[in-house]
Design a protein around this nucleic acid. Structure first.
Length: 832
RNA sequence: GCGGACGUGGUGGAAUUGGUAGACACGCCAGACUUAGGAUCUGGUGCCGCAAGGUGUGGAGGUUCAAGUCCUCUCGUCCGCACCA
């Protein structure tokens, strides 16, 4: 050990060698530097090329977990890369701060949700800071900030005024004991998660946003996202929207049936109008009005009533598991083409929520209808036949085929038959082409405290009226007690009291709050605008025009549908309201894989959680970031491995030790490549290969694991030679490449060695790829047999001469049938 | 059932346009240094074989001079939707 004072007497060079990699010191130093110099704030220079890099903002649950580390390490790497390439980079962070966990904590620990949330934010902000993430601190906000709520409520009012929001009765999970509405996730096996009381379905007024008005555009614009989004996510959204095109027509009841139930007809929807002549019965959902009517009039016998009760009692979600069941209603409909009488049944497989809640049943060509017909002995009448071959036996033929036995349409196939039949219905005014979506309108009411209040007022005279914009935000009262019973807003002594924005008379505030997905549907727009304008606007139009769309969005696959669909929807609505000018908010999307330990998702209950704080404390943020980006490509699941973390640390220590032996310099050294030895040339080549890899990885592929591997290879190659200039050049470039991944150590070393002049765009030096000889493989009949070295400009004949000479053993007694030369790769000789 | 992804050493993973499979790392083995090592350094490491060689990317076929990569079938794992008419 050298006494501290002694260092002054040693040379500069020796001093550096004596220093050891000390991540906690280095990391603190640079985090302070970045903080003090506000290094990562976007510039107000709209002439610069921009990149908006966004990792999905976190919910302030209390502590960060490895999923966060991965999410932000990926985003930070991309942001830092573009910043170094001279782009104006927006890389913000905020907090998705409303939601149930805050209320649950309030119930459990008697702490106010607001206090709990802001304290969590403060703690997690520190945790994220310790990772050295290059966030814009100036633009940070929480969605529960009243200033954010203000504009969200403003949008709600705009949408209401535009007719995009309506109120409708909907069924909600209701716990009769706690007197509260429960989210689906809070219902466990039909019981309340807190008190175990069986939940009931309660019908209540709810606010809905008409996302279905945008269903077609949301589907259509997925095409614009195909190049930048994972195909999986695009497919999931397409699926979720669930567009189907078909025929809607009305079944008229026969005269006697009309009289009995006082209903003339009911609508059905089918995607297979070509099968219409195979209809042998019609089926309606247990909740269908036709059934109500018959029940009211007492026209069904006891058995039928009982079966219908039973069907209705089963939750819709469970019905698909149950066996097909049904009852004949004793009434008949007239087939629109054949004019035959077809019996009307009620069936448990028909859903009231989809289409019109009634179907035409074609047992010969629909497997559900088939099962049902078999069970109840209903006729099965094939009208579609395969082009070649026979109808299958014992099952429905559901593929496209040729129509036979349907007057006027015989001989038509598949789509042409469907089109012709739809045309016939339209001409005869009996039905029309209809598009149906699986997507439902978005119910945004939540009967909870910790959310953005819905800015509506109930007036005795005027009805439901939006609050005046100048009165926004409608803020939450703070003097509430959260007990878990009911909605605290309803029970507050004064909060509800207000005057009607329209007529001024006494009125009451709406007590529902907004779904938290509303907040996350526009937070990325808020980030585009500097804080100084936040009092005045939700977001500035010019700023928005410059920064949007988000160039790279990064987050978990669990948001593939809801969040990403709502955010796309909101963007389109805000466009139509004149706030933004883009159609799609996220140009490119990266869905990161989960972090696993022992093959399972990390969770407290499994006890397999690795705490990021502990990891950072032991090895430093750079090691944590390096491991997480090296262990797997970002889209794949990542299996935690303690010894691989050690390996990452070991690599950084090696980098530090080796770099510290390099003589400092201010510019990239000039090297006469031709005068170098083989190992030196090899080292340069590896370094520049890594540089090329870097552009591909940061710009396009995000497979950081392969870039890190290339950097490791380059370091290994540098280690095999002693040329100081080659070392300088190598470290200059490799630190530039590593900076987005392991920023602290890179800034520390680059500052010491190069005054950080190596942080910029680097040019690839082409001459290092010029070689005197290229290695090639010689294979015989496709099997590699020998290695040869040939000159890079050797002709095909010269290469073949060398190749043949290298494998005499394999040519003995054989004749060459074919010779293939792939320059720079291999020679394949086909022998017999 | 529909839609999507995936399957490569003991492990995580490379191989981007079909062109020397297993880069890089973890682990393991051997050696060096050491009072010691769960530190560090050097070398080795797909499998079978002393070797020559054989064999090998879930399985079976096929296309090709050449297949992890393309095609057909099949098995398995994971994810999303689901009596959606």
């Amino acid at each position: 050990m050298v006494p501290e004072g002694a260092i002054h007497y040693l040379s500069h060079h020796t001093t550096r060698v004596l220093m050891k990699y000390n991540p906690s010191e280095i990391e603190k130093k640079w985090q302070n530097f970045w903080d003090e110099t506000a290094s990562f704030e976007p510039k107000d220079e709209k002439s610069l090329p921009k990149k908006y890099v966004l990792s999905m903002f976190p919910y302030p649950s209390g502590r960060i977990h490895m999923g966060h580390v991965r999410n932000y390490a990926i985003g930070d790497a991309i942001a830092r890369y573009w910043r170094k390439r001279g782009h104006n980079v927006l890389h913000p962070i905020g907090w998705d701060a409303f939601g149930m966990p805050a209320e649950n904590a309030a119930i459990k620990n008697r702490v106010h949700p607001k206090k709990w949330t802001y304290e969590n934010i403060a703690y997690m902000r520190k945790e994220l800071a310790a990772l050295g993430l290059s966030f814009s601190k100036e633009r940070e906000f929480a969605t529960c900030d009243p200033l954010y709520t203000k504009y969200e409520q403003g949008f709600f009012v705009d949408m209401w005024n535009r007719g995009l929001i309506y109120r409708k009765k909907g069924y909600l999970n209701w716990c009769p004991h706690d007197k509260t509405v429960l989210a689906n996730e809070q219902v466990i096996e039909g019981k309340c998660w807190r008190c175990d009381t069986p939940i009931v379905q309660k019908e209540m007024y709810q606010y809905y946003i008409k996302i279905t008005d945008y269903a077609d555009e949301l589907l259509e614009d997925l095409k614009k996202l195909e190049s930048g989004w994972p195909s999986q996510v695009v497919a999931m959204q397409r699926n979720w929207i669930g567009k189907s095109v078909g025929l809607e027509f009305s079944f008229l009841l026969d005269d006697e049936s009309k009289k009995r139930c006082e209903i003339d007809s009911f609508k059905v929807f089918t995607t297979r109008p070509d099968t219409i002549c195979g209809v042998s019965y019609a089926a309606v959902a247990p909740e269908h009005p036709l059934v109500d009517s018959l029940l009211e009039k007492g026209l069904l016998d006891e058995d039928a009533k009982k079966s219908i009760e039973k069907m209705r009692a089963m939750p819709v979600r469970e019905r698909n598991m149950a066996e097909k069941e049904g009852v004949s209603l004793g009434i008949y409909a007239i087939h629109p083409i054949t004019k035959e009488r077809v019996p009307v049944w009620v069936a448990n497989f028909v859903l009231m929520e989809y289409g019109s809640g009634a179907v035409m049943a074609v047992p010969a060509h629909d497997s559900r209808d088939y099962d049902f017909a078999k069970k109840y002995g209903l006729p099965i009448k094939p009208v579609i036949f395969p082009k070649n071959g026979e109808l299958p036996e014992g099952e429905a033929f559901t593929e496209d085929g040729v129509v036979r036995g349907c007057d006027g349409f015989d001989g038509l196939f598949g789509q042409e038959a469907r089109d012709a039949i739809i045309k016939w219905f339209e001409e005869n005014r009996l039905g029309k082409k209809v598009v149906n979506f699986r997507l439902k309108d978005w119910g945004v009411s939540r009967q909870r405290y910790w959310g953005a209040p819905i800015p509506m007022v109930h007036c005795q005279k005027c009805g439901v009226v939006p609050e005046k914009k100048e009165n926004l935000p409608v803020t939450l009262p703070e003097d509430v007690e959260i007990t878990g019973e009911g909605n605290p807003l309803e029970h507050h002594p004064t909060w509800r009291e207000c005057s009607c924005p329209k007529c001024g008379s006494e009125a009451k505030r709406e007590t529902d709050t907004l779904d938290t997905f509303v907040q996350s549907s526009w937070y990325f727009l808020r980030f585009t605008t500097p804080r100084k304008l936040w009092e005045d606007v939700a977001f500035d139009k010019d700023e928005c025009r410059y920064w949007m769309p988000v160039d790279q969005y990064i987050g978990g696959i669990e948001h593939a549908i809801l969040h990403l669909l709502y955010a796309r929807f909101f963007t389109k609505v805000l466009r139509d309201l004149g706030y933004v000018e883009i159609d799609e908010p996220f140009k490119r999307l990266l869905t990161q894989g989960m972090v696993l330990k022992d093959g399972a998702k990390m969770s407290k209950s499994k006890g397999n959680v690795v705490d990021p704080d502990a990891l950072v404390q032991k090895y430093g943020a750079d090691t944590a970031r390096l491991f997480i980006l090296f262990a797997a490509p970002p889209t794949q699941e990542l299996e935690w491995n303690d010894s691989a973390v050690e390996g990452a640390y070991r690599f950084l220590r090696k980098v530090y030790d080796r770099a510290m032996k390099v003589e400092p310099c201010d510019t990239l050294p000039k090297i006469d490549h031709s005068s170098l030895q083989k190992s030196e040339k090899e080292a340069r080549r590896k370094v520049y290969e890594a540089l090329e890899k870097g552009e591909e990885v940061y710009g396009e592929r995000f497979t950081f694991n392969t870039l890190i591997a290339a950097v490791m290879e380059a370091f290994n190659a540098l280690d095999k030679q002693q040329n100081e200039k080659v070392w300088q050049e190598g470290v200059w470039i490799l630190l530039n490449l590593l900076e987005p991944i392991v920023p602290h150590i890179s800034w520390e070393l680059s500052e010491r060695l190069f005054k950080r002049n190596n942080f910029g765009s680097l040019e690839v030096c082409e001459e290092v790829f010029e070689v005197e000889s290229v290695p090639m493989a010689v294979s015989i009949n496709g099997k590699p047999r020998a290695q040869i070295e040939v000159s890079p400009d050797a002709t095909k004949e010269e290469i073949l001469d060398i190749a043949r000479a290298a494998v005499p053993k394999w040519l003995e007694g054989k004749s060459i049938v074919k010779e293939i030369v792939v320059p720079g790769r291999l020679v394949n000789l086909v022998v017999k």
